[in-house]
């Protein structure tokens, strides 16, 4: 069974419905120690990075334990940002830190000029595959997914796809069995269901 972590960052109904639609078996663990039984872990979420404060050190340790046990981990949107070291949105709050770098506001990466684009980035945008991707396996070139966010994860060797809104940012990251998507697969029609199916298949 896949553990869907509920830390009160947004509504989980959509994620549950999409996973149920593809036949995935999941539950919402009430305590971190339950993760020991998980065949995979999904960290969803939308909104402010501060909400990840609900995932304390005990949760951090439990999620790290599932990674060490070779269980796939998928972070969605805010859940993806949480996989990194932290975010300028809530600077004192540590992320899980299994991927390197800190999240920044979209359009403020490095020296990139801020183009006139609307923030938050809301809507459908292209996934530009740069590296082989297990999550996007079976996806077509030009595929689009639904985004709604203002912060982005940093560039790293885990980046497998980029999306451009004013400036390019990582929209899919993969390293070993750690996966993250900045878009919402539960709201991205067929492409989203494909990503969820690919992840669920890896959970065995």
């Amino acid at each position: 069974m896949i553990a869907l972590i509920d830390y009160r960052a947004g509504n989980l109904t959509s994620v549950r419905k999409a996973l149920a639609f593809i036949g995935a078996k999941l539950w919402t663990p009430a305590a971190p120690e339950e993760l020991a039984d998980a065949s995979g872990v999904i960290v969803p979420g939308v909104g402010h990075f501060g909400a990840t404060a609900a995932l304390d050190e005990v949760w951090h340790a439990a999620v790290r334990g599932t990674i060490a046990a070779q269980r796939p981990l998928l972070g969605i949107c805010l859940g993806m940002q949480w996989l990194f070291e932290g975010s300028e949105e809530a600077p004192t709050l540590p992320g899980l830190g299994v991927l390197p770098g800190r999240c920044v506001r979209l359009g403020e990466q490095g020296d990139s000029p801020l183009f006139r684009v609307k923030i938050p980035h809301v809507g459908w945008n292209s996934l530009d595959r740069r590296e082989p991707s297990r999550l996007l396996d079976g996806g077509t070139s030009g595929m689009q997914a639904y985004f709604t966010h203002s912060y982005v994860v940093p560039e790293s060797t885990a980046t497998v796809a980029l999306t451009t809104h004013g400036v390019p940012f990582p929209s899919v990251v993969e390293r070993g069995l750690v996966f993250g998507v900045q878009f919402h697969p539960e709201k991205s029609a067929d492409i989203g269901l494909l990503v969820l199916r690919n992840f669920v298949a890896m959970c065995g």
Partner: peptide, 8 residues
């Protein structure tokens, strides 16, 4: 609607 259509 939400049971089978996975768009916003």
């Amino acid at each position: 609607v939400a049971r089978e259509v996975f768009i916003p």
